[in-house]
Design a protein around this nucleic acid. Structure first.
Lengths: 131, 131
DNA sequence: ATATGTACCATTAGTACAAATGGTACAACT
DNA sequence: AGTTGTACCATTTGTACTAATGGTACATAT
């Protein structure tokens, strides 16, 4: 498995990692059950900070593409292939886009939408929910 | 009609104007058909910039609380009373809140939602839609 | 001439967030 | 002792937005 990180790319480093690992799963270069390098090792190989790799792993586990098993290491999830095709960003773009379009049609300005959005996100965060 | 602007208030100046004019309509202090001071005059009286008052008038006209008739001046809209109770922010909060809640339930992180939201708003703006 | 709403040009200050970095520490296990 | 994922403490850089300000200009009317 070969991962190439381009620090000049506008795509964030952690996102490049996520994309390439999903691609490797879809193309069969890595199979369900295979083990992945540890966060620290991969960060060292790619010359990235541990936190950057940890963030990518965290998102991949949220999508059930990988499984973190603590001290035993991290492995490709049994349903990784199917889950690699599901892009949460597509879902967000579709649902959120529909809602925004409806609000604009109702006469709401972009500025008003932005302000309410910020309030909604802030209110949630103050109740102790974070990533 | 008496308008008091508090520059120490955290509520934006243009929003204070909008709120107070709607309140005056609801309480019957100003009636449909009444004329409003011109943008320049009101800005002078309240010691605000013309643009700030113009912004408030623009939003009030969007909500059909007032009617701008060009060189003839600005007047209270015939349906102003009913339209003063409709708060576009409530509509936005409800619809947008529902969508965000659904996305969070789907596993989306707040950060991901924020990024997609910014992209959607930016894409729209680049097509020449502004307020 | 004067007044109206409106539409551009622009700047300033403040706020908020993403992304990435660095360091320290923990429990659980070999 | 050493490794695993994870969870905190923190900072820096860049971006992007709001709100408000100032000035200029326009067509349309009295």
């Amino acid at each position: 498995m070969e991962i190439i990180i381009d620090i000049e790319d506008s795509e964030p480093l952690f996102a490049q990692l996520v994309t390439q690992i999903k691609q490797a799963v879809l193309s069969g270069k890595i199979l369900p059950g295979d083990s992945l390098p540890s966060i620290r090792q991969l960060a060292g190989d790619l010359r990235l900070n541990n936190k950057t790799v940890a963030k990518a792993y965290r998102l991949l586990e949220r999508d059930s593409v990988i499984e973190a098993k603590g001290y035993r290491g991290t492995f490709i999830h049994p349903q990784a292939v199917a889950n690699s095709t599901v892009d949460i960003n597509d879902i967000i773009t579709r649902k959120l886009g529909d809602t925004i379009q409806a609000l604009r049609t109702s006469g709401a300005t972009d500025s008003e939408i932005r302000i309410v959005f910020a309030e909604l996100m802030k209110a949630h965060q103050e109740q102790g929910v974070n990533l």
